[in-house]
Simulated assay, not measured.
Amino acid sequence: MRAARIARVVAAASLVVAALTACSSDSGSDPVIEPSAVPSSAKPTPPAPSPEAGQHDQVGASAFTEYWFSVLSYGVQSGDVELLRTVSDPKCTECTAAMGVIQDNYNDGGSLQGGVYTVREANTIENFAGQVMTVAVSYDRSPRSGTSPLGQPRGRLDGKSFADCDVRVLWNGKNWVVRGVDAAEQLI
């Protein structure tokens, strides 16, 4: 029994050494792609809004804003910007810029890894006659990197914890859309 346990430990150690050797490079200047940055074969699924996100009130504005960030994460992970386009006002320059970053990385066969947003808090702080509301958001973003169609690294955005922004949402008569994002730091 002891011999079997030792054999398992030696086998596991051999796998770790083999994995580390395969990841090493002769040149110290080559970037290292972190294991979490390796593309997954699993396709992300589009997020669904909570029932509260459809309410025409302050709670709905906050819930919708959280949903918008999950849609942004989905776009970064999948390359699909159609849902993001649907939940964003055409006049939202930050939304258009985010869609551009996603499309620039996926349209030639490349991809993005990471860049997942987690909303810590979303509170409606301004209400303009129920039609436009401002939602103060605190969020985290995991590190994001891009790869070319040939797997070469291209671009990296550091992760961020406790980032803040204000999101303006507009009630278009049937649901919310993001009208704009005011952030002191790069959103995407």
Rank of each mutant, 00 (worst) to 15 (best):
G100Q: 08
H56N: 15
A97S: 11
D166R: 12
T45S: 15
G159V: 05
R85V: 08
D80P: 02
L150N: 13
T147P: 00
Y74N: 09
R5S: 09
E121H: 04
P90F: 05
Q113Y: 00
Q186V: 13
D166M: 03
A18V: 15
S50L: 08
E94H: 03
N172H: 04
W176Y: 05
W68E: 03
R179N: 11
I125Q: 11
Y67W: 01
A63Q: 05
T96G: 07
V32R: 12
L15F: 12
D108I: 02
P143E: 13
R154T: 12
W176D: 05
G115A: 13
E126W: 00
G75N: 08
I6W: 14
V116C: 03
V169E: 01
N172T: 13
T134Y: 01
P35G: 09
G155K: 08
S62I: 01
Q77T: 04
G130S: 05
V137G: 05
V181F: 06
P44A: 10
P47V: 06
G151L: 05
E82M: 06
A61M: 00
T65K: 00
S78H: 06
L187A: 04
Q103S: 15
V17A: 15
I102T: 06
V101S: 09
S111I: 08
S25V: 04
D57R: 11
N175Y: 01
G180R: 06
T96Q: 12
E66I: 00
I188E: 01
A163L: 02
L83G: 01
P143H: 07
P39Y: 01
P143F: 10
M1G: 15
A183V: 07
D158C: 03
A98N: 03
R168G: 00
P153C: 06
V132P: 00
A4G: 10
W68V: 08
F64T: 11
K91W: 02
G60N: 07
T45G: 07
V167L: 02
E52F: 08
V76R: 10
V169C: 03
E94V: 14
V167R: 02
Q186Y: 14
N127D: 15
L170K: 06
G110M: 06
S148I: 03
S161T: 14
A63W: 08
S70Y: 01
V135D: 02
P47F: 07
D164Q: 14
Y106I: 08
P49M: 04
P153I: 13
Q113I: 02
Y117E: 11
I6D: 04
